[in-house]
Computed example of a mutant assay.
Amino acid sequence: MTDRSDPSATAGAVIAGVVPGQSPRVIREAARYAALAHAPLVVAHVDTTRFVAFEDPDGYVHSSTVDVAGAASKAALDEVRRMASETLAGDAVSWTVRQEIGDPALAMIHLADELDASLLVVGTRKRGLGESLREFLTGSVAARLTHRQRRPVLVVPVGEPAGADDELPWE
């Protein structure tokens, strides 16, 4: 419908965790569940180049940057906003785009708590050596979400599924 930033309209929201270049299927599935629940959709991108340095009692977050990545962070958010606009064009669901910072799973949990979200939707990662190594070192965002908070998590397959004889990242 529109990219809105009214925080009062996000209680019970469905949150879609999205990264630039990801299949639009994650946003479509999240929008479908938001429509079924008559809930707003929050498309969330987590900037992993910045992290929370400290948070004020009023909730204001002070961040630090791992690298000089301001332009890259803005470009990533712009790409996610473009993806959401294209994917949700003509859709009746109320939606907004937000950028969080830090560890993806922890940032999404914090956002879900802030919004009293009803559902978290994430996609699977691309298969490949780089992604397998990243997942080995940091763990699956979906798995960490399911173990560290109380809300349901929908994991949307976005790549080609592994065959019965294919090795999985954790094997």
Results as ranks from 00 to 15, higher is better:
D3E: 02
S118V: 01
L41N: 11
P169V: 00
S63A: 07
V14M: 07
G102P: 04
E86H: 11
L77P: 06
A142M: 04
V156W: 08
L137W: 10
R81Q: 09
R81H: 09
E160F: 01
Y60V: 14
Q22P: 00
M83P: 03
G17N: 03
E100Q: 11
L77W: 07
A35E: 14
A11L: 09
A75K: 14
A105Q: 03
M108V: 01
R28S: 01
G90E: 08
G21H: 03
D47R: 05
A117H: 00
T124S: 05
V19L: 08
D116H: 07
E131P: 05
L133A: 13
S63T: 10
L119I: 07
A13K: 02
E167S: 07
T10G: 04
S23G: 03
V68N: 15
L111K: 03
D166H: 12
E79G: 09
T96I: 04
T48R: 11
D47E: 10
W170Q: 12
A142R: 03
A9R: 10
L106E: 15
Q99Y: 10
P104E: 09
V121Y: 10
V97Y: 05
L168P: 07
W95N: 06
A31P: 00
G102H: 08
Q99C: 15
V52R: 10
V141N: 15
D58M: 02
K74H: 04
M108T: 03
A89R: 11
H38M: 05
Q149A: 06
V46D: 13
D56M: 15
A30K: 05
P57M: 05
V52P: 06
D58T: 04
R28A: 01
R127H: 13
D113C: 01
G12I: 00
V46N: 12
S85P: 04
M83Q: 13
R144E: 13
H62T: 04
G12W: 04
V153L: 01
G70W: 08
D116T: 03
V158Q: 13
S85H: 10
S85A: 14
H62E: 05
F51W: 13
R32L: 13
R127T: 10
P104A: 04
T146H: 14
R134G: 09
R25F: 04
L106S: 15
E171T: 10
A162T: 14
A31H: 02
I109H: 07
Q22C: 03
V155H: 02
Y33V: 10
L129V: 12
E55R: 08
R127N: 14
A30W: 00
V61E: 10
F51H: 15
A71P: 06
V155F: 00
A16T: 02
E135D: 15
P20T: 07
S63G: 07
G21F: 00
A105N: 04
A117R: 02
T10D: 13
R134T: 07
R50F: 00
